[in-house]
Design a protein around this nucleic acid. Structure first.
Lengths: 349, 349
DNA sequence: GGGGAAAATGTAAGCGGTTACACATACGCC
DNA sequence: GGCGTATGTGTAACCGCTTACATTTTCCCC
């Protein structure tokens, strides 16, 4: 009774393949979904027929019938700057391995985070969501997202126990302070990120703990607030130099951009790093390596990978993961360790 | 005869809404798809019912029935580094405006470009594709992709006339050479990208044209090959210094990273920029601004926007766009114009 | 008031898969 | 040889929406 013209121009369907191979559509479906065993003989017949018709499964039909999109949604913050490019790459890598696709969306004027969650999850465009770095906690309401298939990256949503893949900011900062201490520095200045920034606060906490443990006092005058930008580093360096107060032994900037901005300004003023002041950053961006800036390496790509892996688990095995805090790695370079390596000339002059 | 229990736990469907509002499913569909007029009264009844049931359209069902996914696929090169993050942001912005989603995929070991094209287009995950920067021309076969809904970004595929959104690399390089010439520089060295790189070759072409027009000769000794990395800039600077041959008047690096690497090395050697040698880069990355490096601004985000706009046109109006080459902008800063601005101290020392 | 065009709705046949259930073989063992 | 179980395949009812076509309603104008 079905009058489908099998010679139609467009695309072959399961039905076409089933006709050509002489089996039922159910069997063809089984061959392609691979969820049920099919005898080797029939599998081959089906695959041959499919190949001849150059058949491709229809994603839409499969999603509708199977209630599964094989898609992960990733929601990025508005100001994504490329800092998150590695996270996305990590997500995509794991998604690809697992046969998933990644729907990437940026929060913006047009799309708020709650709208995106609704669109991606309730309208069935994605099976699970990876949500990055939400600064405004009021953004997503805990009660509405708590039970959704969401993995958070880098930030938790208080009021929910959604799994979080984060980095050990506290530990990273602690390690840095310890390193600077070991290098003989006692008056250590900190340059934080914007007030209220989660990463910044975590790092500050790490510093506090390290200071306490090492018996150092954290003078308020040596905690400066920055904006995570190169410009703010430059500005602060100018201020410090203008104030004509004695330089600290070392300055730990909470990201590399600020550290680089400071270093530049110090150079311009004729100061040497680490000769006159040791410097350290955070994030370990490419430039840090080339400027020999001591830093803390953040596993951005790994974060994406881990989060994606969990999302896949969540979808395919309904296995709810718990949170996980990834290790960071202290990368010691000339800008903080110059004194220890008198043999090799400091690269920053 | 349909016995669907409307009180089922999961999700309301069109049918549920039609029951509650007392109209046919067709009408409800019309209200949500907006393609046909519906009387104001009924529209309101339907929307109220939908709201009460907290109905959301099913993307999969809509895609299957309507043969349209409202999704754009974006294929990024393997080594995407974050350079393309802005392109993606631009794509997403326009997609969001037009009600599309963006499926972002990276070429990798698991997924070759042809496989991705097949998966995204033939399996119906996306309505159109944006393909970035394919270096290996043998990657996508002209005859198989020529007729597909694909917009290329930054590179053409010879053998097809697929529309390309590119940047005026030639013009950018020309402008830079002219600028350096105007600054009084005559012996201008070039540091290109890797051999065979499209951007690099385009820029070199621009330089050639400018040299010819200005009556300068392009000595081979002043064309160096780099790797687009900071390290290669540093390395080349060392070589140049070691060779003890006279420095050129100016060095135009085909990207900022190499320029920054060179500048660093020159500084280390005690040279001044632009005092001893003028420097210029390309791309106008953030760091260039803070290092006062003259550069050429590339409209990455705009490229994404334009490409996405075309893709949407292609899908919604079946309107095939032609290629377009976006303007770039010369950004003159201290590193090349120091001599003209004796009043303000050169920022690079 | 009647006839016809235009506008608004309804009917129902898909879109192309998945999967519960029924059924047919094949196999193992006493 | 008979029976229970495991395995492989077919049947057909969906999944939730779009849309061609039929039908009804509304609106004009003579």
């Amino acid at each position: 009774m079905i009058s489908t013209v099998t010679t139609r121009k467009s695309q072959a369907t399961l039905y076409d393949v089933s006709r050509l191979s002489g089996v039922s559509t159910a069997t063809v479906s089984r061959v392609f979904s691979g969820k049920t065993r099919v005898s080797e003989e029939i599998r081959k017949r089906v695959l041959d027929a499919a190949h001849e018709l150059s058949y491709e499964v229809s994603h839409a039909a499969r999603a509708l019938a199977g209630r599964r999109t094989q898609t992960l949604g990733a929601i990025f913050p508005e100001i994504s700057s490329g800092f998150y490019a590695d996270v996305l790459a990590g997500i995509d890598e794991i998604a690809a391995e697992s046969g998933f696709d990644v729907l990437a969306s940026f929060v913006g004027k047009r799309r708020s985070r709650p709208e995106l969650v609704n669109r991606l999850l309730r309208q069935g465009r994605a099976d699970a969501l990876l949500v990055l770095n939400l600064d405004d906690t009021a953004d997503l309401e805990p009660q509405t997202v708590a039970s959704l298939p969401i993995i958070l990256i880098d930030r938790e949503i208080s009021g929910t126990n959604l799994p979080v893949v984060g980095m050990d900011n506290v530990g990273g900062a602690e390690a840095m302070i310890e390193h600077l201490f070991e290098q003989g520095h006692r008056r250590i200045a900190l340059m934080t990120g914007p007030a209220g920034n989660y990463d910044s606060e975590q790092r500050l906490l790490g510093c506090r703990q390290a200071f306490t443990r090492l018996g150092l006092s954290m003078e308020d005058s040596l905690v400066w607030t920055g904006g995570f930008t190169m410009a703010s580093g430059t500005r602060m360096a100018k201020e410090v130099l203008d104030s004509r107060s004695p330089l600290p032994d070392a300055i730990f900037c909470f990201n590399d951009a600020m550290a680089i901005g400071m270093v530049n300004e110090f150079h311009r003023a004729g100061l040497s790093v680490p000769g006159d002041v040791a410097m350290a950053g955070y994030d370990n961006v490419d430039a840090a390596a080339h400027l020999s800036l001591t830093s803390v390496a953040c596993p951005m790509r790994l974060m994406g990978q881990v989060a994606a892996r969990w999302a896949v688990e969540l979808v395919t095995r309904d296995q709810k993961p718990v949170g996980h805090r990834l290790q960071v790695r202290l990368v010691v370079r000339m800008s903080s360790a110059g004194r220890e390596h008198k043999n090799s000339a400091p690269i920053l002059h």
